[in-house]
Amino acid sequence: MRVANDPGDSAGAAGPYAELFRLQNEFQTRLAEETLRYLRRLQGTLGPAAPGTVVLPDSGGEVTASGIPGGSATLRLEVENLQRMHCVLTPLLSPLVAESGITWFPEVELAPGWQLLAPQETADLALTLRLPATLPPGKYHGALLLQGFRQGALPVAVTAEAPPKPRKTAAAGKRRRTGRGR
């Protein structure tokens, strides 16, 4: 069989070896990419470890709070550092989603926002959420993220209660009764 190297030759451009060369070229390219990726991953496994922190929830329950729209709700959490070294606590709250599909990006006031925990120290976290006056009542679910920790997310549920109906005052009731009597 004749193999031509002339681009104008029809046997070279569309001949039986053209597809073979293309496949071989693609294979070599892919092989080089995958080898490089593998070597980089290997490099990552051989790199120095940075000891980290894991979060162990005590009961697995969710952090809950409730409030009325226009008011506020406070999520409270107790965190104990069991490690032998100081630990840093940076809590963050994810967007909250109601069953109706409404997503609420809460305005959060953290106390403290950033906490340095000594070994065996326990800290009380308080996250105060301002409930917008326009927030529809319902239960909103999300997560409390403890930044930088492995498995550092705790389920959160915030209930926006329906605002109480205005109560009738005694004077208003008397006025109404008087009016009816006339």
Binding site: V55, D58, T74, E78, Q83, L154
Partner: peptide, 23 residues
């Protein structure tokens, strides 16, 4: 404003095989 009666608690511990010590 109200909050849960029982404050949930979490503990921060070493990752498995990765103790955080000075050494």
């Amino acid at each position: 404003m109200s909050s849960a009666a029982v404050t949930p608690r979490v503990r921060l511990a070493d990752a498995p095989d990765e103790g955080r010590t000075t050494a």
